[in-house]
Simulated scan of single mutants.
Amino acid sequence: MDADRVDCVGALVYDGEHRLLVVQRANEPGRGLWSLPGGRVEPGEDDPTAVAREVAEETGLRVEVGEFVGEVERDAPNGKLYVIRDYRAEPVGGALVAGDDASDARFVNREEFDNLPTATLLASTLAQWNALPG
């Protein structure tokens, strides 16, 4: 594995109204910006395990991880590269509450999403994947 690549995952979680679950980042990178719940894959984890853990830590929700949606690369500190693999995930329990690296967490519709300060390229990537909220 390339030491300069950091494996990460993200989750596309929708509610019954096809609103998208987003979190406001409490830490860098992107502090204050809204993004998908997610983070680094820990040693020994596969992607679905990491997705479920990150969603639970950041939003309090338990999810069942579904299909792979896409992969993006984003610049990381110290010349590294975040390689983020995003998956669909279905909420199956828990209660929505911001935790861990998130200062807020909520489901948003398209109008609300369009008015949030979102992480770099998030909106255009979701549009490419036909994954914007309803």
Score class of each variant (00 low, 15 high):
residue 38 G to V: 05
residue 64 E to P: 04
residue 65 V to P: 02
residue 43 P to V: 15
residue 56 A to M: 07
residue 50 A to N: 04
residue 45 E to N: 12
residue 42 E to V: 05
residue 44 G to M: 09
residue 56 A to T: 09
residue 41 V to E: 01
residue 68 F to H: 15
residue 38 G to F: 02
residue 61 L to D: 13
residue 45 E to R: 14
residue 48 P to K: 08
residue 65 V to Q: 12
residue 31 R to L: 00
residue 34 W to Q: 11
residue 50 A to W: 00
residue 64 E to R: 15
residue 39 G to A: 00
residue 53 R to E: 07
residue 56 A to Q: 13
residue 59 T to H: 04
residue 56 A to I: 02
residue 69 V to C: 00
residue 36 L to T: 14
residue 38 G to C: 06
residue 41 V to W: 00
residue 61 L to G: 11
residue 48 P to A: 06
residue 34 W to F: 12
residue 46 D to A: 11
residue 37 P to T: 07
residue 32 G to F: 09
residue 71 E to R: 15
residue 51 V to E: 02
residue 64 E to A: 15
residue 44 G to L: 12
residue 59 T to R: 03
residue 42 E to K: 13
residue 35 S to Y: 06
residue 61 L to C: 06
residue 69 V to K: 02
residue 52 A to T: 09
residue 60 G to H: 01
residue 61 L to I: 12
residue 51 V to P: 00
residue 40 R to P: 04
residue 55 V to A: 08
residue 47 D to Y: 11
residue 40 R to W: 02
residue 49 T to A: 01
residue 56 A to S: 11
residue 47 D to L: 12
residue 70 G to L: 05
residue 49 T to E: 14
residue 55 V to T: 12
residue 70 G to W: 14
residue 66 G to N: 12
residue 44 G to Q: 11
residue 69 V to Y: 02
residue 48 P to W: 13
residue 51 V to S: 01
residue 67 E to C: 05
residue 61 L to T: 11
residue 66 G to M: 08
residue 47 D to A: 15
residue 61 L to F: 06
residue 50 A to M: 00
residue 50 A to D: 03
residue 40 R to E: 08
residue 67 E to P: 03
residue 52 A to R: 14
residue 40 R to I: 04
residue 59 T to E: 08
residue 36 L to R: 05
residue 54 E to W: 00
residue 59 T to Y: 05
residue 45 E to Q: 15
residue 64 E to H: 13
residue 49 T to R: 15
residue 47 D to I: 03
residue 56 A to Y: 11
residue 53 R to S: 08
residue 40 R to G: 13
residue 46 D to C: 10
residue 61 L to H: 07
residue 70 G to N: 10
residue 67 E to Q: 04
residue 55 V to R: 09
residue 43 P to T: 14
residue 61 L to E: 09
residue 49 T to K: 08
residue 44 G to I: 11
residue 58 E to Q: 14
residue 57 E to T: 03
residue 35 S to F: 07
residue 60 G to F: 10
residue 67 E to V: 12
residue 67 E to T: 14
residue 38 G to K: 02
residue 59 T to K: 00
residue 37 P to K: 09
residue 56 A to F: 04
residue 71 E to P: 08
residue 57 E to S: 04
residue 70 G to M: 10
residue 65 V to G: 11
residue 58 E to A: 01
residue 57 E to M: 08
residue 63 V to P: 01
residue 42 E to Y: 11
residue 61 L to P: 05
residue 66 G to S: 06
residue 71 E to K: 14
residue 43 P to I: 12
residue 46 D to H: 12
residue 65 V to C: 10
residue 45 E to Y: 10
residue 32 G to E: 10
residue 33 L to S: 10
residue 38 G to A: 07
residue 37 P to C: 12
residue 32 G to Y: 07
residue 37 P to S: 09
